[in-house]
Design a protein around this nucleic acid. Structure first.
Lengths: 154, 154
DNA sequence: ACCGGGTAGTTGCGAGTTCAAGCATCGGCT
DNA sequence: AGCCGATGCTTGAACTCGCAACTACCCGGT
């Protein structure tokens, strides 16, 4: 009835894991900073706008927004409330489900996204896409897709 | 004198970039949650303890701690202050540089790290290492190492 | 029709992070 | 020696986010 021995990581596994932790933190940090400075948007606000811009009617339910961004519901509520006071989005009750709330992007929000996108894409290129070979980028994406699938199985 | 056309990402590049953003957020989230619940430590507190445990005398300057974790100086100050009140670390003035502060891990801090490590390593295995092939993990680590190098060149 | 458990979203508060400002020290220069 | 910009670290306020509690609504079973 004793605990099984700990299966520590090899030195190499540890190195990769730390590279990931460190690199991803730094990467999202510089991308967030770029957006903040050039477009006065946080990375999550930007992503909210992107999701809305791709949705039919440029409108999404709060919970879909939350799920697709992997954010908590309360986080989305807070974020959207702030964006609403800035005039980028608006909320209205959902007709088919009395509990639901539809969030849609305003023209102002769309304009802000259009203004922010080129600089952001350029930054993603500089710091990620162009820093890697095609294979590396694919491997990176697929690895994290696998991680995501695994998480979903729980 | 007009701006060059935006070099948008291909659909595939976009997919990989989003996988990365999404997957890394979810991964660090579950790992942080595991630590929080099982060991009452945040992921950054855990990493502070790891760095200290590996340092000579189990002691590091505040700024080295900050740099090695890619955290802001004020973030480290706050984190260490909280950990100090919990008895995990202590600070004392640096002898050779009057401005510096040495942070060292206490026995209590070391014990806490030892208690937390097995569960954390197990979680890293479950959600990352065992979810990927050896090549995938290596590719992941190397990709982010490359990103890190590129960031340093700026 | 009504309960009851589950879902959608919001709210207040506490914990953590950033930002700007500040203090002390260092080290090169005159 | 004395200045002065740079470095190391801290502080307090503003802000973001998670948690738990709450309201409102949906839907299945009775």
């Amino acid at each position: 009835m004793d605990t099984p021995p700990v299966r520590w990581l090899t030195e190499e596994q540890q190195r990769h894991w730390r590279s990931f932790l460190d690199g991803s933190a730094r990467l999202t940090e510089v991308l967030g900073r770029q957006l903040e400075q050039d477009a006065d948007l946080s990375l999550s606000e930007y992503e909210v706008l992107v999701r809305l811009s791709e949705a039919p009617e440029r409108t999404l339910r709060m919970s879909l927004l939350a799920d697709s961004l992997a954010h908590s519901r309360s986080r989305i509520t807070h974020t959207i409330r702030r964006m609403e006071t800035r005039g980028f989005v608006e909320r209205r009750a959902c007709a088919v489900d009395g509990r639901g709330v539809n969030c849609s992007m305003t023209a102002l929000g769309f304009a802000r996204l259009e203004a922010a996108a080129p600089g952001h894409v350029e930054a993603v290129r500089t710091h990620l896409v162009d820093a890697l070979s095609e294979e590396q980028l694919r491997a990176l994406g697929e690895a994290l897709a696998a991680v995501h699938r695994r998480l979903g199985e729980a």
